[in-house]
Write a protein that binds this DNA or RNA. Structure first.
Length: 211
DNA sequence: ACCAAAGAATCTTCACCAAC
DNA sequence: GTTGGTGAAGATTCTTTGGT
């Protein structure tokens, strides 16, 4: 905050209080009017500075494309419990006991990411690089919707009874057997009898941790 | 400590564009 | 025409630096 001019702090504060009062960010002209600035260029200049210093993000393709960095708008956020890990060779907790899952850890995603989300969402932390073929890396969190059926082509977490493994793959039912297709085309799909497969949930989104 | 010069940061004016 | 936004050019203010 110390690296900001008085005007930049005022703009930042205005955006914050505007977001509190409304569910959408202000326009450049809103800021200009409220702070008694004579030109939109001043606002734009200061927004650029704030953007460079990582206080805000801007989407210039859309109107009202200002976003505060590091601020969560709780009205539009869903907290999802991280109930376990997903890794080759390790079973995952059954997402039936969501209620009592002592998931101290939760992840927050924007409501836009998971429309119509209810209590049926859960998250798993990816352990190891076993799913790098699905562009999912060690430490990422996958958000899944709890369900036992799915459409062909959907990416799902499946429990393989015989192998005692959980894996995240694209699901194709082909007669009596199931093809579990990795995202990476150079990798071989897994074929397994349909009754060996137990669908745990469908992939909703992947949260990548950038450290 | 004081002051002036130089450079950086900030602001203004004006013109312009695109979408509605 | 209105709204939301950008860009260029130049003016003003602030900060730093160097000389005394």
């Amino acid at each position: 905050m110390k690296d900001l001019s008085r005007r930049q702090r005022a703009i930042l504060q205005f955006i914050e209080s505007f977001l509190d009062q409304n569910d959408y960010p202000p326009t450049i002209r809103d800021i200009q009017r409220d702070l008694d600035i004579s030109s939109t260029s001043v606002v734009d200049y200061n927004l650029k500075v704030l953007e460079n210093r990582n206080h805000i993000r801007r989407n210039r393709n859309i109107s009202r494309g200002i976003e505060l960095v590091g601020r969560v708008n709780h009205r539009n956020v869903i907290a999802i419990p991280v109930i376990g890990q997903i890794a080759a060779g390790l079973p995952i907790p059954v997402p039936g006991d969501l209620e009592q899952a002592d998931s101290a850890e939760t992840v927050e995603v924007g409501a836009d990411f998971a429309p119509n989300a209810g209590r049926d969402l859960f998250a798993l932390r990816v352990k190891g690089h076993s799913m790098i073929d699905a562009l999912i890396n060690d430490g990422d969190v996958v958000v899944l919707r709890q369900q036992v059926t799915c459409e062909n082509g959907e990416t799902v977490a499946v429990w393989l009874r015989d192998e005692k493994e959980t894996t995240l793959k694209r699901f194709y039912l082909e007669g009596e057997r199931v093809r579990l297709q990795p995202a990476n085309m150079t990798m071989e799909p897994i074929f397994t009898p349909a009754n060996n497969v137990e669908i745990q949930g469908r992939l909703v989104t992947v949260l990548r941790s950038v450290v």
